[in-house]
Structures are given as C-alpha cells and as structure tokens.
Simulated scan of single mutants.
Amino acid sequence: MVAVIVSRLKRPMDLRTILEAVSNLLLIAVGIPGNLIVLLVFGYIGCTERKLLPADSIVFMMMFVHLLIILNRGIPQTLFTLNYRGFYDSSTCKFLIYIFRMTRAMSLSLTFLLSAYQSVLIAPATSWLSYLKPKLPTLLLPSFLFLWLLNGVTCIHSILYTSQIQNFTTFKFTLNLSYCIVEYPSEASYFGTGTMTLFRDLFFVFFMVAASSYILFVLYRHRQQVKGIRSSEQNQHTPEMRAAKIVVTFVTLFVVFFGIDNITWIYTLSAHKVPADINNVRVFFSSLYASVAPIVVIASNKKVNSKLQCTKTVKVSQSKTTIVSIA
C-alpha cells in the first residue's frame, strides 16, 4: 500500500500544484496538533475537576469540530494534490463532503454560540440578558444537540448529490471539488441548496457580529465608568477583558476567512462552470480557521497555558533528576 502511494506521488507537479500542496500540508501540520493539544488539555481538566465551564465546553466542541474539518477535508485534499487517487469512490465522497460541510456549519454555529454566551455573561444587571445567566449551564447541552441536528439536516443534500469524478458528461449544475463532484439534477436544486446555505451562514454571522459589537460596547462603557478608580482595582476586570478579546478575535478571524469562503460560494452560484481552483481557494479559507483557532486558544487561554507550563516543568525536573542520577 505504501509503495503504491509513493509511486503515485512521484508524478511531476507544476508550481501551482506545489504551492497548493505546501499550503494544505501547513494547515494539517498546524491544525491537527493544535486542536489535539486543546482537546487533551480540556479533557484532562474535565476529568480532574469533574466539570468544564460553559465557555470551555464550547471551545472544546469547537476544537473537536475543527479537527474533523481537517481530517475530512484537509488530508484528502492534500493527497489529491499530490496525485494520489486511491480511495475516492462515491461512498467515500458522500461521507467526506457531508462531514466537511456539517462540521464547517458547526464551526460557524459554535463561534456564534461562544459570542452569544460571552455577551450574556458580561451583560449588566439592568439588562434583560442578565436573566439568562443562571440558565446558561442548563441551556448548553440542548444548544449543542439543536445545532448538530440543524446542520446535519441542512447538509443532507451532500449525501444525495455527491459522487466520484468519472469520465462522462456531467450535469450542467455541477460543483467540481477536485477529488469529488456535487451534481445537482436541476437549476432549482442548485440555486435552492446554495441559497439556503448562504442564508444560514449569513444568519449566524449577523448575530455573531451583533453579539461581538455588544461585548465591545459593554466593555467600553465599563471602562469609561472605572477611569477614576485606582489601577489596582481596575486589574480586577482583566479576566473579562481577556475573555472578550478572545471572543472578538475568534469572530474577526471567522468573518475574514469565511467571508472569502462565502464570496467564492456566491460566485459559484452565479457561474455555470466553476474552475476547480476556485473551490480549492474556498476550501483553503474554510479550513484555515480550523487551523488558526487552536493557536488563539493556546496563546490566550490561561487554563491551557498553565497545564502546558506544568507539563514543561515536569519534563525539565525529570531531565534534571536523570542528569543527577547519572552523575
């Protein structure tokens, strides 16, 4: 099996293909370890402390979804770029494209959920959002189940219309996804599913940006109110500021990357024949968020940092003990 893969990877590639392969490999090299590290850290915290805060649970679910995105889209896309065609039958294509589209939609939904949670958490006591604070832990699991069900149902067309690339004439309304194709039988199904997906994404993006804007507004007003307080007392509010900055960073990255994704998606709806390179660009930017998000968590989350620092300390102490025993 390995010999077959190696022989197929020895085919010559042009500069464009090499750049595409390198970019996909970078996404894999960064995204898989990054998401695994965050998952393992939060899994360890959940086992030792017997619970996770709602925000940590949302981030944990996001990293799990991002790992699935890279595994189900990044790896097959990279293998295809490297001229490997070993396992792209219709059943595999249906599975890969369905999981990718569902997890992509879940990434969007969970980013919205995180921003909504943070906006409720920092809402003033006089705001109507403050009444939701005690209910947040009980609403988390139903929210997860609802989002998985919603995105699973809205992506079911991927199973119906996806197939492997074959050497015969395809339908007029066809999306070329490099190693698989999505063939819509009619113009109504093509524009219907595309419009539904676009409006679903815009719905979550709109409320995500609204929640982030509310967070920034509340923090700005709070900052204005405490300007006369001593700096030592102002430091008590740094956790709120840090959490808000993380959420706003997530939303900003998402809007930029998925904005490019949706712009190319609108283009595919308006064009009759879409080049494979356009879909490759769209896939790259939709997968880029899944690779960058764990870096943001590792760099900014104190819990993750503390656990990683403890691991480093243990390794250093063990190495010193070994040196002393050898001496």
Rank of each mutant, 00 (worst) to 15 (best):
T170H: 15
V247S: 10
Y220R: 12
L216A: 13
G194M: 04
A116C: 07
L132T: 02
Y161T: 02
P142W: 06
T249W: 08
I246G: 03
T169M: 09
T238E: 11
F203V: 00
S158D: 06
S213V: 00
L147N: 09
M196D: 03
I165H: 12
F206E: 00
P134I: 09
L253K: 06
A188T: 07
M241N: 13
H222Q: 07
F191N: 06
V226T: 12
S143F: 03
L140H: 13
V153K: 05
V218C: 01
M208R: 08
L139H: 10
Q225V: 00
S127D: 13
T174Y: 11
L121W: 05
S213W: 02
Y190C: 05
T138Y: 09
F254W: 12
W148F: 14
V205R: 00
H157Q: 10
V256K: 15
Y214L: 04
T126P: 04
S186I: 01
G192C: 02
K135T: 01
G228E: 08
Y214P: 01
P142Q: 07
F206N: 05
T154Q: 12
I165T: 05
Q164M: 14
T252Q: 11
F250L: 12
G192D: 02
Y179H: 13
I246Q: 14
P239D: 04
L149R: 02
L140M: 12
L132P: 04
V255Y: 07
L147K: 05
L147G: 03
I246S: 06
Y117W: 13
F173D: 10
L149G: 06
V256C: 13
L139N: 08
H237C: 02
I181T: 11
C155R: 10
I122M: 08
L121K: 15
V218S: 01
Q224K: 15
S186D: 07
V251E: 07
Q118T: 11
G192P: 03
Y214T: 00
G152I: 00
K172L: 08
I229F: 14
M241E: 09
F254S: 10
F171D: 11
S127L: 08
L145M: 13
F206A: 10
I122N: 06
V209W: 05
T169R: 15
L175S: 12
E240V: 07
A125T: 12
A211C: 05
S213H: 01
V255M: 12
L121D: 05
F191K: 12
R200Q: 04
N151Y: 06
N235W: 09
I215L: 07
P185V: 02
G194L: 04
L253D: 02
Q166D: 09
W148G: 05
L129S: 07
L198K: 06
A211M: 02
Q118I: 02
R221G: 02
F199C: 08
K172T: 11
T252A: 14
L177D: 12
